[in-house]
Amino acid sequence: MANLVIAEHDQGSLKAATLNVISAAVAIGGDVHVLVAGHNAAAAATAASQVVGVSKVLHADGAAHANLLSENAAAQVVANASGYTHILAAATAYGKSVAPRVAALLDKAQISDIIKVIDADTFVRPIYAGNAYATVKSSDSVKVLTVRGTAFAAAAKTGGSATVETVAAVADSGVASFVSAEVTKSERPELTAAKIIVSGGRGLGSGDKYREVLTPLADKLGAALGASRAAVDAGYVPNDYQVGQTGKIVAPDLYIAIGMSGAIQHLAGMKDSKVIVAINKDADAPIFGVADYGLVADLFDAVPELVAKL
């Protein structure tokens, strides 16, 4: 068996999610190789070579990968896919865009969002917003998988010494081009990697209140900020704050849900957190059904008090 992990990177460094994917590949067994498709991305390739468990890095460097477009990334994976039994990517916006394209080009099924490796052909994945876990077996010769990061511990970033092999970069597909990016700037930990998340819902009432009430708590705890779909739809915070079935899946040590009801679609994104705290004035809110500690209180009183007493 041989695994090819599609690295996610920003040309300079590896994204944390790739470390979880490498662990999933190690769980499958056999060699673990990492493909870094980038432009002037030698630093990312070097970083990949140091991850424990990786035996070889394939580094494709070319202008076609300058903006990490899915069409070119998928073509690169396919160009280097020969000999691999498993091709893995993170279940992130990038991985979810690239992996199905790879699978279709190889005429293989793709298995999304795996949370457990049973054996080389069999995997567990959530369906119906995590309300059921399906164990699926693939009859394809090559398995294309996306991996839910919260289900696999991150591989150690350093300590490995894989060889880096340069492979030819594909040409640009010519069908898509990058225009611009609007990156949310934040000094806080990344949502999917944070140990503590302070998350707000519609109960905050406005974007200003969201920031005024939640920021001091997040500052005090060194936490990332998250939100329910309702809060994002209402424009309180940008889209990348959304936790849930179709947003980000998180599993921090502590998740503090403030002013949110706890729709099943939201619970799907956070119910694997170690400890969940809910603060809501509605004692019947479904969020209390999953919270380890529930505080029935007006958040506008309770959260400032919490900040003051911490």
């Binding site: 081009s177 990058f178 225009v179 611009s180 990016a181 609007e182 889209n239 990348d240």
Partner: peptide, 9 residues
Amino acid sequence: EMDGGLETI
């Protein structure tokens, strides 16, 4: 809608 914000292509 990307993981870190928005991208236009």
